[in-house]
């Protein structure tokens, strides 16, 4: 995630990450060893559950970052920048919040677009030039 879905992301990096996460998940389930049982206070099981959640979250973050082929806020897609190096917004295509519906581990989530409506202050291109 640090390497391919950090502050600056690229199409090719995100695709690499999306290829790698299922491999990590497969390795996790193949090699996981959790001491104790689920019938007792078990901090190791708690940690293992979190890792499973993080794998799903990581995959979704990469997928969303790949889908949003613009730069905005903390999401900087290197392909989408102005000549000055600022984040280039593409509001005509991406002025919505993406709510992803979980459909199962490893399955493609369903996108629900929630349009962003700005009545008074409208998003503009940042430029210090």
């Amino acid at each position: 995630m640090w390497e391919f879905c950090g502050m600056a992301r690229t199409d090719s990096g995100l695709r690499k990450a999306l290829g790698r996460i299922p491999q990590i998940r497969e390795e996790f389930w193949r090699r996981i060893k959790v001491p104790g049982t689920g019938e007792e206070f078990n901090q190791s099981l708690e940690k293992a559950n979190r890792v499973v959640d993080y794998l799903e979250l990581a995959e979704l973050m990469c997928l969303d970052a790949l889908h949003r082929a613009e730069s905005c806020g903390g999401h900087f897609r290197e392909e989408s920048q102005t000549p000055e190096g600022e984040a280039a917004r593409r509001d005509e295509e991406f002025a919505y919040a993406a709510a992803w519906e979980f459909t199962g581990t490893g399955e493609a989530p369903v996108l629900h677009r929630e349009d962003l409506v700005f009545e008074y202050v409208h998003p503009t291109q940042r430029s210090y030039a």
Partner: peptide, 10 residues
């Protein structure tokens, strides 16, 4: 402890 197959300290 985990590598030795023992219960880790909570």
């Amino acid at each position: 402890l985990i590598l030795r197959g023992e219960d880790p300290v909570a």
